[in-house]
Every structure is written in C-alpha cells, then in structure tokens.
Design a protein around this nucleic acid. Structure first.
Length: 963
DNA sequence: GAGCTCACG
DNA sequence: GACGTACGTGAGCTCA
C-alpha cells in the first residue's frame, strides 16, 4: 500500500508565484494559480507511475481562519501576509480542480492541513504501508521515518525538479533525527509561523542541546547544568515559552478525520471529469495535452457549465472553503497585527530628555550586554557634516527598546568661538576604545542594526574599519510601503508616532552661523541624537509588521535592502575626474560666452542680463514686439529653448545667439566650474550620493554632485565626459541596457510584434515606422524613423496628441492620427494603458513586475488635468519602475558574480540604464562578458521576461570613449 | 525660497 | 467640453 498526501495549500502558493498572472480570456478571472496547480498535479501523477504508483491519494488544504493553535498562542501565524487579491478567487477553484482530477479534496475546520496529513500518515504507517507527503514544509519533517518520506517538487535553479526527503535529509536540515525535530523546533522557534521558541537560540544551538540532553523536557529539567551563563538563564527563564512552542509545532496524529482512510483509494483520472473542468478554465493547450495522453477527443466534452465564464457567480460559489481574503481579515490577520503594534508603540510616550550619556567603558559594556540580549539595536551616527566621505565621527547613539536610548559622545570640542578651535571636551570616551568595544556587535551576523538612511552610517563606519551588517532601514521600509513620499525621519515620526522631533537647527542654529555637531555641548547633543535612535527603533517596530501586512516584504528584502551596502561601496569608491580638462573647458566656454554676450547686446540694442528670463522676455516680446510669445503660469514671458527655437526659425538672430550662450554657460556653471569643487581632498576623487528612496518609480537619484545628468547630447557637452577618467593603469567600462523600457513594455503589455522584433534583433524604431507607414525596414527615411521613435517614447510616457505634436513640431490632428494608427497596429498597447488606469483608480497604486508598488495620492481626483496626469504617470510607472528594479537586481548580484568568475572590476556609477566600472587595463576585456551576463539575466529567476535583454559594454580611458 | 531653465535617462 | 499636457529626476541662476 502506498498513500500519497499532497499539501494543497503549499501547492497553490507555489503555483501562484511560479506563474505570471494569467487570466481567463473571456472574463478576466485570474486563473494563473489554478493553471499551475493543475500542471503540478498532472506532473505528479506522471512522476509517480511505476513502482511508486499510489494505492491511496488525497489533496489536503488548510481550512482558513483559526485553528486550535491560536487558542494556545494568539500570535501563531500572526505575521502571515494576506493572500494577494487575485489569488483569493482561485482558492475554491483549486478544490474544484482537485475533484476534477478524481481526487478527494480534504479540509477540516479548526485543523491545519499538517494535522490531517499527520493523522492519515500515522494510520497508513500503522497498517504497514508506505507514505509519501508532497510538500517542502519543514514542519512535516517530524513525520519522516523509514516508511514515511517527503517529496519536494519545487524546482530550484541548478537543482533537480524534485527531491526526496528521508531521515538523512531531515538530519541535514535540523541536525537531529526526525523524532527529535519537534524538540529542536520548540527551542529555536519559527519566524514564518511566529512560533516564539527561546530567544537567541537558533537551529544549530537547539540541535546541540537536544543531542546532548535527549529531549526538551529533560533539557528543561536539567537546564541548571548548562555551562554558558547567558544560555542557561534564558532557557530557565523561557522554559514555558518552549513548552508552548512544542505544542504549536507538534503535529496531532489524532485529528478526528471525517473521511476514513479507506475512502482515499486512488481512482484513475477520468476524462469525463477533467476535460470539462479544463475547458471551463479555458486552458486550451493543457486540454489538448491531457486529451492526447488520455486518448480522448476533447471535442467530445463540453466545458463544465457551473464554472464557465458565462455562469453567474463562478468565482464565489463553487467549493466549500472559506479560505478567502475576507476570512484573513479577522482579529488575527496581519493587518490587524500591524495596527495593534502601532497602537502599542504609540502608547509609549516620547521624551525629549533623560537619555543616558555614555562616558566610560563600564557604561558602554552595559549597553553592549543589553544589545546582545535583544539581538537588535537602532544605530545613528553624529558627524561634523552631511558628506559621509568627509565628515568625522562625533558621537554614536544606540537604542534597544522604545525610550531606552543612549548617546556616546566621542569627538566633541569646547572653546566655541576660539579661533584656535578649542580643545577636546571633558567626559568622553576615547574614540578608538569605544569603537573597539562596539565593533563585535556592529559586525555580528546575529545582531540586527537598524537605521534611518543607514547607508550614511555604513559609509562613516567603513572609514573607521567597521562593516555594519546585517541591517534594516526604516527609510527604505517606508519607501517600499508608501513610495517616494517624504521618508525623512521627522516626517515619519509625525506620520506614525505623532511626534515632533527636535530639529537640528533648534540646537545648532541656522545659516552661516550654524554650528557643526562637534561644537555642541554634549548635553545638548545627547537629547537630539539619542532621540533619533529612539524614534528610529519605534518606527522599525511600527513598519516591520506593515511590510508583511501590505505585501511589501519581498521588494524590501530582495531589492531595496540588499542594495544598501552596494551603493555605500560605490559612493566610497568615487570616480576620478581630471581637473585640467575641466579647467581648459571652462576657459574655452568663458571666452565663447563673453563673445556671445557681446553679440547679444548689440543685437538687442542694449546691455542686459542674459541670464535673466524676465529681462529677456521684456526685450523680445515687449520692446522688440515679436509675435508668438506665450506666458508661463505665473504670467511671465516664457523664454525656454522651444520658444527661442521658434524665434530663431522665424529669423530672429538674437534668439540663436541666446540659445548658444545658454548652452555654453550651462555647461560651464553646472559642470566644468562646479565639478572640481567636489573632488574630495582625501581620495582625490568625486563621490556622489545616491538616493534610494527619492524617486516615485524606483529609480535612484544622484546628488552632490548629480552624476546622472552629465552631458552627452551635444558635441561640447560630450567633452565634459572626457574628464571622467580611469585611475592610472585602469580603464573605465560602460555597460548599458539597450532599449530596456521598450523591452519591458513588450513584456508587460504582451505585444507580439514588439517581442518578435526584439527576438530578431531588429531596429525597433524602424520596425515601428515600417508597421505604421507601410514602408520596408531597409533604407527607411530618417525623418520617418525619427517620428516612429518619438511615438515609441510617447507610448512609454502615456502618450497624448498634444505632447507628440509638440515633440515633433507637427499639428495636433496629425499627431492624433499617428496615435490612432499605432494603436491599430499594436492593439495590446491600449489594453495595457486601460488596465493601468483601472488599477490606479481601484487600488491607488500600480506595480512593477517585481511587485514594487507605486502609489498615487489622489488617484480618484475629479480634477481633469490632475487626473490625466495621474493616468499618464501610472502608465509610465510600471515600465520605468520595472526597468529600475532590473538594474537594482543586477547591481546587487554584480560584485558576487565578478568575484566568483575571477573578474576584476569595481562598480562606480549608475545612470538608470547604465553601469560604470573601473578595471585594471589588462583585466577590463575579460570583465565585459561577465558584466553583460549579470545585467542581461537580472530579472531572473523572479521574472522570466518574454523578450531578450541586450547590454552593450565597452572599455576605454574615459567615459566619453567607453560609451 | 519659488520659478525658470536645462542637463540626463 | 472642461482641463493643460508627454514620464522620471537635480542644480544653478535670478529675483522677490
């Protein structure tokens, strides 16, 4: 006898995440998870043919809502995120699918699937039969023995598609034999199910203890014998927690199952049941495949009427399960948990004073001990400035619990106003001594360091030889949850805690007379600084459960958080900039500007400030009386480039001179004059700052200086790029994604013509022109191609006839015709646009292919122009944002792969679709293919793109030549 | 500090 | 038919 028990709920979630969000064609019902579920069931029955053929088989589901474990411990599984919206209607359908496969679908109120599985497994084992549990859930591993094995069908990259789990595999995972798994789990707990365990004990320690003492009760009884003082105390203190945990993880083999084991006898797959179901789901290809294997003609069956798109209420009525989103929104749902935490934290009053000032090693040792005990700490550094590549450390704040924070002054000076700078202030620890005490904590992989914009602190600590890890960042948590709103600490404190933080200017003054942090008295500094750490810790408590409750954990944990140390290293490396080149260019630009200025004055007939749009407008449209002037929204004359372009075309020489003057002065003031001032005297390089939580779509931004807008479009501008050079003996590598946004669009909107064109490596704009204007791709008129290109860009931006007309300098009606033609040629595009508009209105956000949410406030505004704006932005955001996520993923993976492939190149800069590296001259060529491979494959395995991604990479002495 | 202009993707 | 427009940024300058 062989009983096969399928863990249905884990099948559903796996199916859901493995497949793109398919919908049923005729009515849009989400069916991706159902499709995956059917595939997995079918594959399983194929795989189990031969000697493994089951005599008994069933699919077991979790009954939603509470189980008896919630009565034992109300926080059990409290962190579980709510099921995604489009998965909810698929729960009942998977029960239908199970029955269509002629399998019993079993679930029972008050019990989890695991208990039912355990009960049947025990029954079959007692009869002397074999059992296979199809699941990868480690909680089921306690059931494994020589007759009970598990089968994990999840496919992981680089591993076989299925894996048998027997006693050896369990030992590998838990360090104990299967019968002791429960004891280990009750000690180490389980973060996923929110089983508490004993704080500070992980799998390794738990296995060690259980192997030494035999089982949990013996261990607890003899806990006094444990040598390590800390461990001994926590185990004695938390013995009860371990006992509760044991009850939570131990599976119940005596569930009063309502269907006897004998009724689980395997019935053969019956085409009469299966084919009508598959037809109702409209899985055409799968229906054919199944029919062929069952040797039936699919046309002999009609779709199951009760489940068809035409049937009313299909998604709500079938099945028996209450496993829906609504059922999860009970008192124990993740949202409720997040709200409860928020209330709890808000109830702890914020103080502005009374924080401890740590002045000696003894005090600091107390904090170190407390931090080890907690396993996490909020950290904030105070420094002499805002540039973390130059500022010096002045003090460190730590917080372990809301209200429990300290300030460690390390670099305060006194003698304010003394031109000799005064001396070191009294009552501070020696900097090195303090750092030596803190380093083990700050680098301990078991202690979480929590910060607000922790990249700044990473940069500071790195310069003192400390690598902060692992980390959490409240700013990035807020970003993953609420997008690019003000994610600064003061705003977050107001938003979540209704607390007004002390402003830096309140203690340091403003403007020119503002004091740097080291000049503040230690007492004054302490209130401000310790509050920062305290608030950061409170925000962490509030935001952490919200990530889970609002489905933002994956983006935060797999994209945003791991990028932090990568960016910190890029910022620390900086880039080499050649002063001489810039200074020569400045001189050149200055001469040309002066000549142009002179010419402008002559043409205008008076001397005026060319840099003043106000004066210029008055001259052009006032005194000279030129036609075609428009006003800006404040009523001033508009004198932007497009206005001056028009005038120049009309034959106004002054306009052309002004355009040229603006061109050179822009390059001079913003680049050739400004950049040298950013060269760091310590490193002799320019270190930009990347902002990770600033851009709505998920892009990075760069400031101080902005290295993402270095000129390239004009010949003069490009000269500036020649000043970005590799260090002696090195080369710069530029690697950029080709047409990444159009490729992403082709994937998201599922446009066959675009996908094919990218597959074939066609010139995409020429292809568009060819489709639209019916001309051959080869030898296309450059003018026509230019128009097609503008349209392609327009599509990405949420096209409007006005915008396109403006861009191309054509009539609005003509632009409107182009758009119409485009939509006819590529019908999927309009569907995509309408879909995003619907989504933003219905849920207040749109999403990237990796699940990043881009929220829009006022998504339901009645104001027509604001509404149109939000619509265009929500069309653009998933495209720009998905591309941004792809390059973030590439950056995260880059360093590790370069090291593994023994390629040498340091990542320096990111410019949205381009990465710049520095590599030893003789190693650069070898690094190119590695870099390309990482960038081109960055979406996988999370998303399998329907288009190939192409990256062009080149090495040269400077950025201009490498691009 | 707001508004304008313009550099980039 | 209103509404005022292509999407996303940051910096330097003028002028109140």
């Amino acid at each position: 006898m062989h009983l096969v028990l399928v863990d249905g709920s884990s099948f559903i979630f796996r199916a859901y995440h493995a497949l793109p969000p398919l919908t049923r064609k005729s009515d849009g019902l989400p069916v991706g998870a159902v499709a995956g579920f059917c595939n997995m069931l079918f594959k399983l029955s194929e795989d189990l043919k031969g000697e493994k053929t089951p005599t008994h088989m069933a699919v077991i589901f979790d009954y939603s809502g509470k189980s008896f474990r919630n009565d034992l411990y109300d926080q059990y599984k409290a962190h579980r995120p709510e099921a995604p919206e489009d998965l909810v209607p698929q729960f009942p359908l998977t029960r239908d699918a199970t029955r269509a496969f002629n399998l019993p679908s079993i679930e029972q109120e008050g019990y989890e699937a695991d208990d039912i599985i355990a009960t049947y497994a025990c029954q079959m084992r007692d009869r002397g039969g074999k059992v296979t549990i199809v699941s990868s859930d480690k909680d089921l591993m306690q059931l494994v023995d020589e007759n009970v094995s598990m089968l994990d069908t999840i496919a992981r990259p680089g591993q076989p598609p299925m894996r048998w789990i027997g006693p050896d595999e369990v030992f590998e995972k838990f360090g104990v034999t299967p019968d002791k798994v429960v004891d280990v789990q009750s000690l180490c707990g389980d973060a996923v199910d929110n089983v508490p365990g004993i704080p500070g004990i992980g799998i390794k320690t738990a296995a060690l203890l259980i192997n030494e003492y035999g089982d949990l009760e013996t261990l607890l009884a003899r806990a006094g014998e444990i040598k390590q003082q800390k461990r001994r105390e926590t185990i004695i203190e938390n013995a009860e927690l371990a006992r509760i945990s044991r009850k939570l993880v131990a599976l119940d083999c005596n569930t009063p199952v309502q269907i006897p084991l004998d009724d689980l006898v395997r019935q053969p797959i019956d085409a009469k049941l299966l084919v009508p179901f598959l037809k109702a789901m409209e899985f055409a290809a799968f229906t054919r495949r199944v029919s062929t294997l069952l040797e039936v003609d699919p046309d002999d069956f009609s779709a199951d009427a009760a489940l068809s798109a035409t049937a009313e209420g299909h998604s709500g009525q079938s099945g028996t399960s209450a496993d829906t989103g609504a059922a999860h929104r009970t008192n124990h749902g993740p949202e409720a948990h997040a709200e409860a935490v928020l209330e709890k934290i808000r109830a702890i009053p914020c103080r502005h004073e009374g924080y401890e000032i740590v002045r000696d090693a003894h005090q600091l040792a107390g904090w170190v001990e407390k931090i080890i005990e907690m396993g996490h700490v909020a950290v904030d550094t105070e420094t002499t400035g805002l540039d973390n590549q130059q500022a010096d450390l002045v003090g460190i704040c730590l917080a372990t619990e809301p209200g429990a924070a300290c300030y460690i002054p390390l670099g305060h000076v006194d003698g304010v106003g003394d031109m000799f700078g005064g001396g070191r202030a009294e009552g501070q620890m020696d900097l090195r001594t303090a750092l030596d005490m803190l380093k083990p904590i700050l680098e301990d992989p078991a202690i979480l360091k929590i910060g607000q914009n922790i990249k700044y602190d990473l940069g500071i600590f790195a310069r003192y030889g400390i690598t902060l890890t692992p980390i959490d960042d409240t700013m990035l948590m807020s970003y993953a949850l609420d997008g690019a709103r003000n994610n600064g600490m003061d705003a977050l404190a107001e938003r979540w805690l209704s607390h007004t933080c002390i402003k830096f200017s309140d203690i340091a003054g403003t403007g020119k007379s503002q004091l740097t942090f080291d000049k503040l008295s230690i007492e004054k500094a302490a209130t401000y600084a310790a509050e920062d750490a305290d608030i950061t810790l409170r925000l962490w408590h509030v935001l952490k459960p919200r990530l889970a409750a609002f489905n933002a954990t994956t983006v935060y944990e797999t994209i945003d958080r791991p990028l932090v140390p990568v960016l910190a290293r890029m910022e620390a490396r900086g880039v080499s900039v050649d002063r001489q080149i810039l200074s020569r260019l400045s001189g050149d630009f200055a001469q040309r500007a002066a000549a142009l200025e002179e010419e402008a004055h002559e043409l205008a007939g008076e001397r005026f400030n060319l840099g003043s749009p106000k004066q210029l407008g008055d001259i052009l449209f006032g005194r000279m009386g030129l036609e075609g002037g428009t006003k800006t929204k404040t009523g001033a004359w508009a004198t932007g480039a497009s206005v001056l372009d028009d005038l120049a075309l009309q034959g106004v020489p002054l306009a052309k001179v002004l355009l040229d003057w603006r061109g050179v002065t822009k390059l001079k003031s913003t680049y050739t004059d400004a950049l040298p001032d950013y060269i760091n005297p310590r490193t002799n390089r320019v270190h930009t700052s990347y902002h990770q939580a600033a851009v709505a779509t998920g892009r990075l931004s760069s400031t101080d200086p902005n290295l993402q807008n270095i000129p390239i479009r004009t010949e003069d501008g490009r000269k500036i790029r020649t000043a970005f050079i590799a260090a002696p003996g090195n080369l710069l590598i530029s690697a950029d994604y080709s047409q990444i946004e159009l490729r992403v669009l082709a994937h998201i909107a599922d446009i066959d013509a675009l996908k094919d064109a990218f597959e074939e490596g066609l010139d995409i704009h020429a292809m568009t022109a060819s489709e639209m204007f019916g001309v051959p791709i080869e030898g296309i008129d450059p003018m026509i191609r230019r128009r097609a290109k503008a349209i392609n860009f327009g599509i990405i931006y949420g096209i409007s006839a006005f915008g396109l007309a403006n861009q191309l300098g054509i009539a609005r009606s003509e632009a409107g015709d182009y758009i119409k033609t485009y939509f006819q040629r590529f019908p999927g595009i309009q569907d995509y646009m309408e879909q995003q508009k619907r989504l933003v209105k219905a849920q207040g956000f749109v999403s990237t292919i990796f699940g990043r949410k881009i929220p829009f406030e006022n998504a339901n505004t009645k104001n027509p122009s604001e509404r149109a704006f939000i619509e265009r932005a929500s069309i653009n955001a998933p495209i720009q944002g998905s591309a941004a996520d792809i390059i973030r993923r590439a950056m995260i993976r880059m360093e590790k792969v370069l090291a593994a492939e023994k390629a040498q190149a340091d990542m320096l800069l990111q410019v949205h679709d381009e990465l710049i590296f520095e590599a030893p001259a003789d190693k650069a060529e070898a690094a190119l293919p590695v870099i390309r491979k990482v960038m081109e494959g960055a979406a996988e395995p999370a998303v399998r793109l329907a288009v190939p991604i192409q990256v062009d990479a080149k090495a040269a002495e400077n950025w201009e030549a490498a691009h």
